[in-house]
C-alpha cells in the first residue's frame, strides 16, 4: 500500500514537556482575557482568533501527536484549516463592509 503505517505512539513525550505545553496554554488563555479588555477595535477579533489558533496548534501538534505523523495526515489537517480560514475570511466581505 502507498502509505507507511501509522507511527504515532512510538514517540512518548515526557511529562515535563507536556506540562510545559500546558503552561503555555494557560498563559495564552490569560493573554486572551487580557486582550479582550483593551479596545483594539477591529483587531480585537484578530487578536482573539490569532491566540486561539496558536493554542489549538499546540494541542494538535503535541497533545494529538500531529508533529510525528506522516505527510498525508499533515496535509489533510492543513486542508481542514485552510477551508476554515477561507470560510471565516470570506465572511468578512460581509461583516467588514456592512453599512
Amino acid at each position: 500500500m502507498s502509505h507507511a503505517q501509522n507511527e504515532s505512539g512510538s514517540h512518548p513525550l515526557s511529562y515535563r514537556f507536556l506540562a510545559a505545553i500546558w503552561a503555555a496554554l494557560l498563559t495564552l488563555t490569560a493573554l486572551t482575557i487580557f486582550a479582550a479588555r483593551i479596545d483594539l477595535g477591529f483587531f480585537n477579533v484578530v487578536a482573539a482568533l490569532g491566540i486561539a489558533s496558536i493554542k489549538s496548534s499546540l494541542v494538535i501538534f503535541f497533545f494529538m501527536h500531529l508533529k510525528y505523523e506522516n505527510r498525508t495526515i499533515k496535509t489533510m489537517v492543513l486542508v481542514a484549516f485552510v477551508v476554515l480560514a477561507i470560510c471565516i475570511g470570506l465572511t468578512f466581505f460581509d461583516v467588514g463592509f456592512r453599512r
Binding site: 477561507i86 470570506l90 466581505f93 460581509d94 467588514g96 463592509f97 456592512r98
Partner: peptide, 25 residues
C-alpha cells in the same frame, strides 16, 4: 468540493448583507 465551499452567500443576496459580499459571492 473545494469551490463549492466558497459560494454559500449566494443564498443571501437579498438578506441585507453588504454589497461587496454580494459581488464577491
Amino acid at each position: 468540493a473545494f469551490a463549492g465551499s466558497l459560494v454559500w452567500a449566494h443564498h443571501m443576496f437579498t438578506s441585507g448583507m453588504s454589497d461587496t459580499a454580494v459581488l464577491v459571492f
